[in-house]
């Protein structure tokens, strides 16, 4: 059944590929353009990168973005992994209820999640800022961790835990020396996913932050609304590189695991 790619398919694929990548490529190329205007090429320059790194607002936002991403990923990995284990061993009704609730932030529109959290923080009289931003990120990250860990739990041999107990391990030791290592690929994927989601988020952050605390996404939005700034191009290039690296790691990991299984 396998045929060689027909020329038509090849051209079509190339066109779609260009459509998907040309805008990103243009951004990256123009991040090295010495001239501020987009029509003209003023020669190669790193000055927008220099300006980017000397822009205090952006650097502050970068720190906020990264720290929120790291902390929310760590917290949601802990809560999410525990939740996945708890849900997995729960009775059917509890399982359905908790899974349903954890699906809400993934199904719901970001804008609805964002304003619902905003209303909550106001209701609780919390000042919008770093803490509310962090709580929001944890909220939308936990479901992704559960989503990544759950399949690993299902793949787990249902006797693996009993085998450890049988060999003399206490239940707690069996949990940490067998269950956690066995599901660790899911935990790592969940952590990377949570980290990426957190960096990528704009809409929820937009509604749940305040007091001058801002993330990169929010900075980009504010700048883009005012018009085009070449620093954003430089930022795009960096972020693209980071995201691509992270995803490559995730993909190589999962394909390695799969190959191991196939043998």
């Amino acid at each position: 059944m396998k045929k060689k790619l027909s020329p038509l398919s090849l051209i079509y694929s190339l066109l779609i590929f260009v459509f998907l990548y040309a805008p990103i490529a243009v951004l990256i190329i123009y991040s090295f353009n010495a001239s501020k205007s987009r029509g003209t090429w003023g020669g190669f320059s790193l000055k927008w990168y220099a300006e980017l790194f000397s822009n205090k607002d952006i650097m502050q936002a970068l720190i906020t973005t990264l720290s929120i991403a790291v902390i929310s990923a760590v917290v949601s990995v802990v809560i999410g992994t525990a939740a996945a284990v708890g849900i997995y061993y729960s009775r059917r009704r509890t399982k359905a209820l908790l899974t349903g609730i954890s699906n809400i932030p993934m199904i719901n529109a970001d804008i609805v999640t964002g304003i619902s959290l905003l209303l909550l923080f106001i209701f609780l009289k919390l000042d919008l800022g770093y803490v509310t931003l962090l709580l929001s990120h944890i909220t939308f990250n936990i479901p992704y961790v559960i989503l990544s860990v759950m399949p690993k739990l299902r793949q787990l041999d249902k006797n693996a835990f009993e085998a450890a107990i049988d060999l003399g391990a206490t239940p707690l030791r069996a949990f940490f020396s067998v269950i956690i290592p066995e599901i660790s690929p899911g935990i790592v994927t969940g952590a990377i996913l949570a980290f990426t989601m957190s960096i990528d988020d704009f809409v929820i952050s937009f509604f749940t932050t305040g007091g001058g605390v801002s993330t990169l996404s929010i900075e980009i939005y504010t700048m883009a609304k005012r018009g085009i700034k070449p620093e954003i191009n430089a930022l795009s290039a960096i972020m693209f590189l980071v995201v691509m690296t992270l995803l490559l790691i995730v993909n190589i990991r999962s394909s390695k695991v799969e190959k191991k299984k196939e043998r």
Binding site: I24, T196, F202, I232, S236, F240, L247
Partner: peptide
Amino acid sequence: FVLPMWMNFLLRTYAWMTL
């Protein structure tokens, strides 16, 4: 083909502004 969807959504939109 799926990678661009992981690029920051604002940057993807912003790219079209510049274009």
